[in-house]
């Protein structure tokens, strides 16, 4: 038997490809983002150190302020809805009824579909001549089509609804995994004592998955702050009327391209994104530790 992989460098041979990717595509870009944020790097050259110029520009950037406002609204709406609805859905699909695998799989389908696909489907439903406006007009609820895709606030609301619709299955599966650990005997004992479904949900299910709810709310906050595809596709890349429906990531993408691009400023915006995402994450982790 040949013993080629016996030496002390063997573990490094196994780890080598992963290590290269860790350094080149994870650690270096993280470091370089900070460096680039203080330069005037352009898509076509440039790259001189410009001190705090990008920071000053960011602090006076009305578009960035609007994008951050949109992000906060996005988060405030998504957080309660996506923390609670998927939990109810998980409770619904938890019981192993005949055909339940079909329902679970189908409910997860919007998650595996591309955000572009989902946004195009909803664009067709929400446009002036689309099904939702048509149905509402037929019912007589509205006389004129509602401008879901062209009004500054309705467009934001449409994108939020889309994020919620697409995200339900994802968080449902996380909750489903956690519900497996909630002890069944507790439910049965409570049922015998005459506790109704609502009561059991509040006093047994919710406390049992409390940590998972916290984890889910962190994931929701961070992904709400990172939103891109929904707003980009629903607004056809324009960011809505007057660019008022941009997210921070849309601004980053906008500055990454073409003759008007500015990679240095885009990197400063990336730092802003990091600061706002790391905030809720640390806060919630701390809450979690205190509660435990």
């Amino acid at each position: 038997m040949t013993r080629t992989f016996q030496g002390r460098f063997t573990p490094w041979l196994f780890a080598a490809p992963g290590l290269v990717w860790l350094v080149v595509f994870n650690l270096w870009p993280a470091f370089n983002t900070v460096v680039l944020a203080f330069t005037n790097a352009k898509p076509l050259g440039g790259g001189h150190f410009t001190g705090l110029a990008n920071l000053g520009r960011a602090l006076n950037d009305d578009q960035l302020a609007t994008a951050l406002l949109n992000s906060v609204i996005y988060m405030l709406v998504c957080l309660p809805v996506l923390t609670l609805l998927p939990l109810l859905l998980a409770v619904l699909v938890e019981k192993k009824l005949p055909g339940i695998t079909f329902f679970r799989t189908t409910f997860y389908t919007p998650v595996v579909a591309s955000a572009v696909v989902v946004a195009l489907i909803w664009e067709w439903l929400l446009e002036d001549r689309g099904l939702i406006n048509g149905f509402a007009q037929w019912l007589g609820v509205i006389a004129e089509p509602l401008p879901f895709l062209t009004d500054r606030w309705l467009l934001l609301l449409s994108a939020i609804s889309l994020t919620i619709w697409k995200g339900m299955g994802y968080y449902m599966v996380i909750y489903l995994s956690a519900l497996g650990n909630v002890r069944r005997e507790l439910h049965e004992a409570a049922a015998v004592d005459g506790a109704g479904a609502v009561r059991r949900f509040r006093s047994i299910t919710v406390p049992g998955v409390r940590n998972t709810m916290l984890l889910v709310s962190v994931l929701i906050s961070v992904s709400a702050l990172r939103v891109f595809s929904e707003l980009y596709v629903l607004s056809n890349g324009t960011g809505g009327p007057g660019g008022q429906d941009m997210s921070v990531v849309m601004l980053i993408q906008m500055y990454s391209r073409g003759f008007t691009g500015h990679l240095g400023y885009a990197s400063m915006l990336s730092l802003v994104l990091f600061v706002v995402t790391v905030g809720p994450m640390l806060l919630l982790l701390r809450l979690n530790r205190k509660g435990a």
């Binding site: 992963g18 860790l22 080149v24 595509f25 994870n26 650690l27 270096w28 870009p29 993280a30 370089n32 983002t33 680039l36 790097a41 961070v222 990172r226 891109f228 990531v249 980053i252 990454s256 990679l263 885009a266 990197s267 990336s270 730092l271 994104l273 990091f274 995402t277 790391v278 994450m281």
Partner: peptide, 20 residues
């Protein structure tokens, strides 16, 4: 270090990723 990369959303490093 591998675990540490998880706190960075991909969008944060996407510009320097492009530069690389």
């Amino acid at each position: 270090l591998t675990l540490g990369t998880l706190i960075l959303p991909g969008e944060v490093t996407i510009i320097s990723q492009y530069v690389t």
